[in-house]
Amino acid sequence: VHHSSLTPEQLISCIMHAEPPEIYLMEDLKRPFTEARMMMSLTKLANKELFFMISWAKKIPGFVELSLTYQMHQLESCWLDVLMLGLMWRSIDHPGKLIFSADLKLNREEGNCVKGIVIIFDKLLAATTRFRELNLQREEYVCLKAMILLNSNICSTSPEMAEDLESRGKLQLLLDSVTDALVWAISKQGLSFQLQSARLAHLLMLLSDIRHVSGKGMKHLSDMKNNNIVQVSDLLLEMLTNGS
């Protein structure tokens, strides 16, 4: 079945099936935490998640029909937003904690050992609190994550991408389908029409907060790498360099 003929319900079901598995750091972050140890653990997790994220993107209906240039561009510009939204979702039932993985749960004070990271932790915790207040549903969460992937940074495209009208058109249609799916997921909740619109607006406005934190996170990670506090893997380095 082609993605264009999927109902919103079927599309959400496909996106749900694309969800990556739960990840584990698989090693104890030794206490007391040091800057180098914590950064190493966080980048190790990010690297593991990136591999799963690429498989996830390929399973979003229609994504692999975009040109490879578009696929790469979308992933490079949104990867940290996607990681951060995933982190918020895992942390939603744990006020005051950031659940980086099942075996790496940190509170804001534990961020103190890494220069400049507490301000990022605070923004992540604040956005998580907002999602908790909104009682974000799993169906809404998967739609928002797919929207981040499809919506990323279209304005800064290269001439080569601007000329690829076919992929641009496909991307727009895909984004419209996922938007419809999100609207459908909200409409099932028995809210008045006015409250449905407000909820849609609240959820979408949070994406701009996530974009803002991810920009801070990219800058932070670049600084940490440039100051040789942490080494990053080939894939992470590539995403960091091409994404910023």
Binding site: I54, K58, L68, Q71, M72, L75, D234, L235, E238, N242
Partner: peptide, 13 residues
């Protein structure tokens, strides 16, 4: 782009 391109073009599991 080598690593990302490689991962995008390899067949999914």
């Amino acid at each position: 782009h080598t690593k990302l391109l490689q991962l995008l073009t390899t067949k999914s599991e």
